[in-house]
Design a protein around this nucleic acid. Structure first.
Length: 345
DNA sequence: AACAGTCTCAACCGCCTCGAG
DNA sequence: TCTCGAGGCGGTTGAGACTGT
């Protein structure tokens, strides 16, 4: 059975929305509320399909949408969640209040992915690229890299946008003779070898996130003989990470799988989903003003070549928030409640 | 100034999920 | 239990903007 296309109709408009159309849609939804998208175009006097209206509203017109630059904390949360969940943009978006899945997806594809590659991290596995290759051999492209290369064509170093966050620590720290945003494989390897302790730390944090994903995958595959069943609300979300995070490539940075006891796995599975990252964002922004865990965010965003930075400080702060992921003291609410909340989304 | 290459992101497409009947 | 359709989701596209030569 083939489903008929949802948006078949004569005279349906496609492409960019005009302000006039936006006004019509906004005013209709203000008056009648969301839902019944199929009928909205006709009732609102729009020559659009209902799906297009829903997307326009959800991704652009909704009043509580936050647009513009992603903060350093938001970027980190995206990276962490992507490491454990993969391309589950809607799941990631639930942890970033006021951000849409589409915006996060775009930001990942256009900024974060490239930045991770520049940092020597595979954006798919979230492991250092070096670990995806045999020692002593040049870092050949992984699948993800192939995709990246083919997507961006013969992307020249100059075409890479300057990173806006502390990810540029590595590049900006390097000497002027080296390309600042090297995109070739050899230059990536070069950069990785020359990475500062800060960028190594970032690699470690990402690897740690990947290890959580590995644990979750392993638990779903039964590799760890998990005797305790996962909460049903978690199974769906984690089941499809198994093909991208294999125990074969288990991260050397992380805790060994033998050290994980079944109760830990259940706890991590349950609690990773319970994390309210908005609390985390608020916590830092409230407690420290514009600082991130005591570290001035402006400094993180700035060109560090002109700034004196205590890397130990950064390490403390970054490991601090990454520990947030495994510190159960931050959780006070009920697991079942969370499952209910999740299922009700 | 003109052109080509590249990047960004809003919007589209098609498949999937889930609930109502 | 099955069918159907609305809504949700992730991947992809393409127009416009940007940048370098």
């Amino acid at each position: 059975m083939s489903r008929k296309p949802c948006c078949v109709g004569e005279g349906l408009k496609k492409g960019a929305w005009t302000t006039e159309e936006d006004k019509k849609l906004i005013s209709y939804i203000h008056e009648h509320g969301e839902g019944g998208w199929r009928d909205i175009p006709q009732k609102a006097g729009l020559k659009r399909c209902g799906k297009s209206c829903r997307l326009r509203w959800a991704n652009y017109l909704k009043p509580d949408i936050k647009r513009g630059e992603f903060s350093y904390e938001e970027e980190q949360i995206i990276i962490m969640l992507h490491a454990s969940r993969g391309n589950k943009w809607s799941v990631i978006a639930r942890h970033l209040p006021k951000r849409t899945d589409n915006e996060i997806k775009n930001y990942w594809n256009t900024h974060l992915k490239k930045r991770l590659i520049d940092q020597g991290i595979d954006p798919v596995t979230h492991k250092p690229l070096a670990y995806n290759n045999n020692p002593g051999t040049p870092p050949k492209s992984s699948d993800s890299q192939d995709d990246e290369q083919s997507q961006s064509g013969s992307m020249s170093p100059k075409s890479l946008p300057p990173p806006s966050s502390s990810y540029n620590l590595q590049e900006t720290s390097s000497s002027d003779e080296t390309p600042r945003y090297g995109a070739s494989l050899t230059s990536k390897k070069h950069l990785f070898k020359r990475s500062s302790s800060t960028s190594k730390l970032l690699n470690k944090v990402a690897a740690r996130a990947a290890s959580i994903g590995n644990i979750l995958s392993a638990s779903m595959e039964g590799n760890l003989n998990n005797s305790k069943p996962l909460p049903s609300c978690l199974n769906d979300d984690f089941s499809d990470t198994s093909d991208q995070l294999q125990m074969d490539n288990y991260d050397p940075f992380s805790q060994s799988s033998e050290d994980i006891i079944p109760d830990d796995i259940s706890m991590i599975n349950t609690e990773l989903d319970k994390y309210d990252f908005s609390q985390f964002l608020e916590q830092y922004s409230n407690k420290e003003g514009d600082n991130f865990g005591g570290y001035n965010q402006d400094l993180l965003m700035s060109d560090v070549s002109s700034t004196s930075i205590d890397e130990y400080d950064i390490m403390q702060n970054i490991t601090g928030w990454s520990n947030y992921l495994v510190d159960d003291s931050d959780f006070s609410y009920d697991t079942n409640q969370d499952c209910d909340d999740k299922n009700s989304v």
